[in-house]
Amino acid sequence: MKKLPVYQINTFNCQSDENDLYFNDFKSHLINHDFIELSHSHNFYLLVLFTNGSGFHTIDFTTYEIQPNSLFILKPGQVHSWQLSEDIVGFIAFYSQEIYNVYFGKKQIDEYSFYRDLKNSPEMKLNDLQTQEISNYFNLLLKENKQNEFRKTDKLLNLLDVIHIELARIYESQQDHNLHPYNFKIKELEQLILSNYKTEKSPSFYADKMNMSLKHLNRICKNVLDSTLTDFIYAKIILESKRLLSTNKLTISEVADNLGFENYSYFTKVFKKYTNLTPQSFKKLV
């Protein structure tokens, strides 16, 4: 098995001088970049909206059905692949965290909740009206991207941000993320896990960092996420282990070491507990 490719935006011959933006209609994108149908990851954000056609989109080892009104939002590092019908139609956008955060200053891209939630789905199902509204903004992006007008990058980034705002409104209404009083605590926990999961796997570490009892933090996780704190921590660890194993770059022992496990056998035990597969079996499947 070949090493899993990690693509950069300039792989796709984008027109932006910064090589931090790329916009295209999906059919044109496929003509020159059919290699994207094979499993790969990126070092940038990806947004894709399908308006026609069908297929399957596998993201971090979960497969989603593609149909009209399907929208997918991917973060850097997520592993994905496509199976697409010949009549597939839609829009696709690539953008780096750097260009977005530098341009908007105080507003950071990961403040949008569909990027922050560890348990969120990368899939959004729009209705016909929502798809039409988002398509209109994409058409404006494509039109501006083909021209060389004054302050082109400014307009592209602001149109991209309008799409983010519209999607955030849809996402919040679908997921009810703002309704739970402990939502801000879950966001704090997510950031702590993302920063410490390789070295700290004990639930008590995160409870201490958040200045609350382990019992109380577990209760919050159960009420908001329907998950124990331990399972929430290990969801991130298992996902990262799958990503590392799928690249075929590291041995299983190296993956275990990279994720802070003391030995190969304990990593294997934990991996099998959460996936019902050994790491060796998983590598053969991907």
Rank of each mutant, 00 (worst) to 15 (best):
L21T: 02
N24L: 06
D25E: 15
K27Y: 06
I31L: 15
I31K: 12
N32G: 14
D34W: 11
E37C: 14
E37Q: 13
E37K: 14
S41D: 03
H42G: 08
L46M: 13
L49A: 06
T51V: 11
T51A: 06
G55W: 06
T58D: 02
T62C: 12
T63A: 07
Y64F: 15
Y64A: 04
I66C: 03
P68S: 08
N69Q: 12
F72M: 01
I73Y: 02
I73Q: 01
I73C: 03
K75N: 09
K75I: 13
G77S: 08
G77A: 11
G77Y: 02
Q78Y: 08
S81T: 08
S81H: 08
W82D: 00
Q83N: 12
S85F: 10
E86D: 15
D87V: 10
G90Q: 00
F94G: 03
S96R: 01
S96I: 07
N101W: 06
N101K: 08
Y103D: 01
G105R: 05
K106N: 14
K107V: 13
Q108H: 12
I109Y: 03
F114S: 01
Y115G: 02
R116V: 11
K125T: 07
N127V: 13
N127D: 15
L129T: 10
Q130L: 11
Q130F: 12
T131N: 09
S135L: 12
S135E: 11
Y137V: 05
F138D: 01
F138A: 01
N139D: 15
L140H: 05
L140M: 11
L142C: 04
L142D: 04
K143G: 03
N148C: 09
